[in-house]
Simulated assay, not measured.
Amino acid sequence: MDPGRLDWDDIRLFLAIARAGTLTGAGKVLKLSQPTAGRRLRALEAACGVALFQRTAAGLQLTDEGEAMLLGAQRMEDEALSLQRQFAGSGEAVAGALRLSSSEWFAHLVLTPPVTAFAMRHPMVTVELIADFRLLSLDRREAELVFRFKPFDAPHIVQRRFTHIRYGLFAAPAYVEAHGFPAPGSDGEGHRLVMMDSQFDTLADVGWLRRRFPRARIAIRSNSREVQAVAATRGAGLAVLPVLLGQTYGLVAEPGVDVPPGRDIWLGYHADLKRLPRLRALVDHLVGSVADPL
C-alpha cells in the first residue's frame, strides 16, 4: 500500500460504504453518483493492494482487511470531527448553520414556533430542524442540538432537562359520544386502542394503557404520535398522547385523576460547541420560550 495515495476523502468514502452497505447509499451521504463512488472505491482498493469489501447479494460486506482498516478509519474520523467541532466552537458571530434533531410531533408543535422566532431575530443564522424518529449523532456532527426522552450517557455531551411532557387519554368527540370513556375499574372490554408499536412496549404509558384496559382491542399501532392522533380523530379508539398533541387535534381528554405517566425531554450538544455563540443563543432562546411542563 502507498500511504501517500490515501487522503481523508478516501477514508470518508470507505466509512460511508461500510455503514451504508451499498455504493448508492454511500453516494447519497457524500453527494456522489453511484458510478463515481464505485470508481473511487476501486482506486482506493488498488492503492491499498487488497479488497476492502466483498460483493454479495446483500450488499458490500467488509473483508478481513476491511475490518482491520475500519478501526483506524474510525479513529481518523473521530480526530477530524473533533477538530471541526473545536474550530466551529471558536466563532464569535451569531451567524452560520445549526441543525436540530427531535421527534416529529415535538418538532412540529413545540420547536417550530420558537425556532422560527429565533431565525427571524437572527437573519445570519440558518436553522435546520430535522423531524425524524432516528435522532442524529452529536459526535459525527449530524446535528448540533438533539432533543430526546432520556438523559445522554456520553461524558462529553452537555445536557439539561428541557421540559416535562404531560400525557392524557384521548378520543374523538364522536367516539366519546358513541362509547364514552371506560368506567372506573373497567377492563376496557368493548373499546379499541391506538398505541405505540411493539418496539416501544417498555414505555411507561404503554404499560399504563395495557394494565388499565387489558381486554380492549388494539386497533392501530404506530411509532408516530401524530399518526396515532390522526387515527384517534377518525374514531379509531382511545389513545395516550401528549396533552399538547391531543388538544391540537381537537380530541377529548378523559376526565379524572388517573392520568398516564409523563416524560422529561432532555437537550444535549457536544462539549466542543459550548462556546459557539449561535448555539448558546438558540439554547437560551428555546429554554426561555418553551413552557415547563407542557
Rank of each mutant, 00 (worst) to 15 (best):
E142C: 10
P123H: 13
E226Y: 06
A131K: 15
P242D: 07
L145V: 12
Y249D: 05
V243A: 12
W266C: 08
A131Y: 11
R221Q: 15
E142T: 03
R263K: 11
L203N: 08
I220T: 12
A219R: 15
A204L: 14
N223T: 03
R148L: 14
P173W: 12
M195S: 09
E142I: 00
I218F: 04
V176G: 05
R217Y: 05
E142V: 02
E189N: 07
L136K: 14
N223C: 12
F147H: 05
A236S: 15
N223I: 00
L169M: 10
A204F: 13
V257S: 12
E144H: 09
I218W: 02
L241E: 05
E128M: 07
G180M: 08
G250P: 04
G262F: 11
S222G: 08
R141M: 13
V252F: 00
F152T: 08
W208G: 08
G188W: 00
G168M: 06
L203K: 12
F181R: 06
D197G: 12
V259I: 14
W266T: 04
A131I: 01
L209R: 01
F170M: 06
G235P: 13
P255V: 03
G250S: 08
P261T: 02
A143L: 01
A232V: 06
E189R: 14
I130N: 03
V146L: 09
L238Q: 09
V240T: 02
G246M: 02
A171S: 04
A231W: 00
G256H: 07
R161Y: 01
Y249F: 15
V206D: 03
S224M: 03
L129C: 10
E254V: 07
V176P: 08
L209H: 04
Y249V: 07
L238V: 07
V243E: 15
R141V: 02
R212C: 00
P260E: 11
H179F: 13
E254P: 06
A174F: 10
V176S: 05
G237N: 07
M196K: 14
P151H: 06
Q199G: 14
R234N: 09
T126S: 14
W266L: 12
G246C: 02
P242Y: 05
G190L: 07
R140Q: 14
D264I: 08
D201G: 14
V127P: 05
